[in-house]
Structure formats: structure tokens, C-alpha cells
Computed example of a mutant assay.
Amino acid sequence: MMAEMEAVIQRLWQLLPQIGAFEFEGKNGAGSATDWTGRGEGRVQVTCHQEGWLFDEQGHYQTPHGKVLAMTNRFWWQRTPAGVSLSHLRYQSPVLLFELRSVAGRWQTHEPHLCGQDHYSAELVEEASGFRLKWQIQGPRKNERLEYRYSLMDAASPP
């Protein structure tokens, strides 16, 4: 069983440095007081970072009102004994978002990330051309669903 789990983790781990582009969609749910609805796309530069993979994302985001904004993120993927973890690098300081573990062919949040009263959870689904990372953020003022579609370098079309 342990060898099976290691093989599943290794397959995802080998996929991560092959990513070259992303597409993003955000949707507000009932009761949300934010305006994260919109779409984005861009490039991902993957580099080795402290025994993990750093995703340096650059692109643009379009609101439902047609406004186009610059979009940048820095995400740090690390291996854990039971899966992979994802941190957001803010001002070069990592903020651990969650650990993902493989459950029945999907990667799911082991425990939600708490930011104040907000709960962040995610699910990652591997695909032939990369993977999808679906986030859910729930709190007193938030009910958001975010979906990233990460594509392999050779499958990535210019944004």
C-alpha cells in the first residue's frame, strides 16, 4: 500500500515541472460579499525552489464588466510524506494553504486552511494535458469557487 501511495505522489510530482500555462475562472456563490467573478489566463514558469517546485504565474484577469487586470501569483509545491502541499509566497514569505492527499483517484485537502474566519479547501484532478485545481473559500463574507486549469508546456497555447 505504501509503494502504491509513493507511486501516485511521484506521478504528480513529475507532472508539476512540465506545466507551462494556466487558465483561471472565479465565481461567487450565494451570500458572497466579494467580487472574484472573472476569467484569467497566463504563463507559468516552473523552477526548483528549496526541494520543491515554484510556480511563477503571470497573466491577465478580466472582470465580468470587461476590465482587464494584471494577474501574478507565486505558488510553492512541496512533497509531504502523504501527498503534496501548496503554499502561496507573499512578499517572499510562504503561507501554507493546504496539503493535498490522494483519495480515490483525486487529490483532496487533508485539512482546510484557516485564514481568519475563512476556510480554504481544494481538489486536484490530473488530466492528460495537465491538471485542474478547484478551490472553495467559505467564510462570513466569502463563498467563492476558483478553478485553475494548468496545461503542459507543449499543450499550452499563447495567452
Results as ranks from 00 to 15, higher is better:
residue 5 M to C: 04
residue 136 Q to Y: 10
residue 36 W to A: 02
residue 122 A to D: 06
residue 66 G to P: 08
residue 148 Y to G: 11
residue 30 A to Q: 12
residue 149 R to H: 15
residue 37 T to S: 15
residue 41 E to A: 14
residue 127 E to T: 15
residue 89 L to Y: 07
residue 142 K to F: 06
residue 21 A to W: 00
residue 111 E to K: 14
residue 12 L to F: 09
residue 30 A to M: 06
residue 123 E to V: 12
residue 103 V to P: 00
residue 12 L to C: 10
residue 118 D to N: 15
residue 46 V to R: 02
residue 123 E to M: 12
residue 145 R to Q: 15
residue 5 M to F: 02
residue 74 R to Y: 05
residue 145 R to E: 14
residue 26 G to K: 06
residue 73 N to L: 03
residue 157 S to R: 15
residue 137 I to A: 04
residue 26 G to I: 10
residue 84 V to E: 01
residue 121 S to L: 10
residue 107 W to A: 00
residue 15 L to T: 14
residue 88 H to E: 06
residue 159 P to W: 03
residue 98 F to P: 05
residue 54 L to T: 03
residue 33 A to Y: 06
residue 71 M to I: 01
residue 1 M to D: 14
residue 72 T to N: 12
residue 150 Y to P: 03
residue 45 Q to F: 00
residue 92 Q to I: 02
residue 107 W to I: 00
residue 153 M to L: 13
residue 62 Q to V: 10
residue 91 Y to C: 09
residue 21 A to S: 15
residue 99 E to W: 08
residue 26 G to T: 08
residue 3 A to F: 02
residue 53 W to G: 00
residue 78 Q to T: 13
residue 13 W to E: 12
residue 104 A to C: 07
residue 82 A to K: 13
residue 127 E to N: 05
residue 5 M to S: 13
residue 100 L to C: 08
residue 81 P to A: 08
residue 32 S to E: 14
